[in-house]
Design a protein around this nucleic acid. Structure first.
Lengths: 369, 369
DNA sequence: GTGAAAGCGCTAACAT
DNA sequence: ATGTTAGCGCTTTCAC
């Protein structure tokens, strides 16, 4: 019924089959077996070695002479042989599967990170499973545990704020599951990737101070994210270095969403002495700030300068284009993936990588009015 | 070295092992075997049936009495048994793996679609593999073929413009690989999902005409996408219904990017008789239009009304918020996934689903100046 | 309606 | 440096 390539050749069997092949309908046999249906024993027979030797070559294991290695590789290439993933998993002790754990699915940030992790996995012939999770610390440990065990994960990549759930990390360690985190709140002694967000923000504040601004406000990020702390700390550093005293009224709560930035800005603009510049802890909130400012008939950066953090696509797509801090999101995903795989292969060898940021100066910041 | 849960219980062996279990270190055995390490034969032994019967129950196959079925289910539940995915794949003829093929990775649209497809797959215990592809018709067929064969895909979900590559579709059919498409250019006789984009756009034009606009421009989408054709057709329909003659100068090329919308709008505004309203074929281009208009010191919708298509997050995050057509992107992904799985299970049973659109009227459209 | 045996394609452990 | 054997945990086939 199903128009599938049929099942001829399902058993080409051992070495002695070369003879059998010469009989009956040999041509049909070859033709009907789609590429990829070649098995390790076909390669072994063709190369005149045992299956195990082929296996060694494929997995870069020692104890194969360079000559044999080359010969096997050539046959693999010629036969277009690709190992059956499930057979490898079933026979071996690894699943060649890692998962990326995340909350807040529809963000540009995560899409970029995901692409990076995928790059890393593909390069090393690992599979990536996506695990969107609702982050409510209650049952997250149980959920992740179920996932890890059912899917036999070899490791996980964690994204904020899941990076900071102590109970989860402890459980992963107990289970012996390697993990790698992106922008963890306490990155020390971890495997993963971070950006020096604090310095980045301090530089951004210096930029604003250089434009003459003295009343610089900050819209904080979501309290569950370590990034919110770092960005606040950078803001304070920046003020101090510019010799600007902190006005607590200029530091307001946000939550990383457009709406929270919009609302926070309205509160700031209602102040008796409103700010002339606003640093929002991410781009979405900065977009909200611009929306609120425009809605009052004011304009950016003429009346108020605005800047953000992340350099997501929205930064270039709003008017005026947003001054922001760029983190190399996709690279971060890739590096987090690579370090995880290293940790999987050689326990204890994964490390913490710090990647550089860059200030993207665009049109949303200008001289103090 | 690795702190892994150890390997005790790796061979509980046949039914007769119940006896063995009662001896030696039985408690240790239970404790050390993590959840998920229960095997089908454990379930069989516990339920007093054969492995095959358990298998039948798990796969909803016939020829099991309701009583037995219930008993097995209870044991499965109690033992928290989960079949080993790789073992199923290796033994069976299915891979339980489908891939989503896409180009243009970092779009909100695709992220939403992906979540929908993932929903469908998870609900049916299928795995989803992501296949970002560079769409240059040259070697795409070979690339996809390699992917399909190597990964033993059971099917693929196609997104625009990969949906419209005739050579690819033909090859997939030859290989007997089911596929499901989202917004294919020629959806007839296909499995997948579509929106009546043409009618949606016609309605949008009616909205603009109702606000008094007569000079309504259209920025076209990327020519490789069927959506561009539909949206243009809807624009023409809308004009005709409103009794507005077509001015070819008001229809300009775009390419779905912010920049293309920005440039196109500058061309439109330079016209001797510029438009008072612009319908851009997607939200990114509409954002570009707003950017270009603002840059000239004009404002939206006071001087020019702007509307888009898709209702991606950017529509709410720019100022003014964008009037646009909302397509239920995530649902579309989910439905495309479900239809694909149906097609996989029962050839010929997958179908084409049409999902509804809605007009999102926001602040970027207003009365003709 | 149910079960026993034979693989699926690969790797681990143990030869040699 | 290389080969042999025995599974991994499930489904298939075919017998009952």
């Amino acid at each position: 019924m199903a128009p599938q390539p049929d099942e001829v050749g399902k058993r080409a069997a051992g070495v002695e089959d070369d003879a059998a092949l010469a009989e009956s309908p040999p041509v049909k046999r070859r033709i009907d077996r789609p590429v990829g249906r070649v098995r390790i024993e076909d390669v072994a027979a063709e190369a005149g070695v045992s299956m195990k030797t082929v296996s060694r070559v494929l997995n870069d294991e020692p104890n194969v002479s360079e000559a044999t290695r080359e010969r096997v590789r050539a046959v693999v290439e010629r036969l277009q042989y690709r190992p059956h993933p499930s057979a490898r998993v079933l026979a071996g002790r690894r699943s060649y599967l890692v998962a990326m754990l995340y909350d807040n699915p529809s963000s540009n940030y995560l899409m970029e990170v995901e692409l990076g992790v995928l790059d890393a996995c593909q390069a090393q012939h690992y599979n990536l499973m996506l695990a969107p999770l609702e982050y409510d610390a209650k049952d997250i440990v149980a959920k992740v545990e179920a996932l890890v065990l059912q899917s036999r994960l070899d490791g996980v990549v964690l994204t904020p704020p899941i990076t900071d759930d102590a109970a989860l990390l402890a459980r992963l360690d107990e289970l012996g599951i390697p993990w790698s985190s992106i922008s963890a709140r306490e990155p020390n002694r971890r495997v993963g990737v971070v950006v020096d967000e604090r310095s980045a923000v301090a530089e951004m504040i210096a930029h604003l101070a250089g434009l003459g601004h003295r009343r610089i406000a900050h819209i904080k990020g979501h309290p569950a994210h370590g990034a919110s702390e770092w960005r606040l700390a950078g803001y304070l550093d920046g003020l101090e270095r510019a010799g600007i005293g902190l006005d607590p009224a200029l530091v307001v709560e946000g939550g990383f969403s457009y709406e929270s930035g919009f609302d926070a800005t309205n509160r700031l603009l209602d102040l008796p002495e409103p700010p002339t510049a606003i640093f929002a802890a991410n781009d979405d909130m900065a977009a909200g700030a611009i929306g609120a400012i425009c809605e009052r008939g004011m304009s950016v950066p003429k009346h108020v300068s605005v800047c953000g953090f992340d350099d997501t696509p929205i930064a270039r797509h709003i008017y005026p284009a947003l001054t922001t801090v760029r983190q190399p999101t996709r690279d971060m995903g890739r590096l987090a993936g690579l370090e995880l795989l290293r940790e999987i292969r050689e326990r204890g060898q994964g490390s913490l990588v710090t990647v550089p940021y860059t200030l993207q100066l665009r049109r949303s910041t200008g001289p103090k009015p």
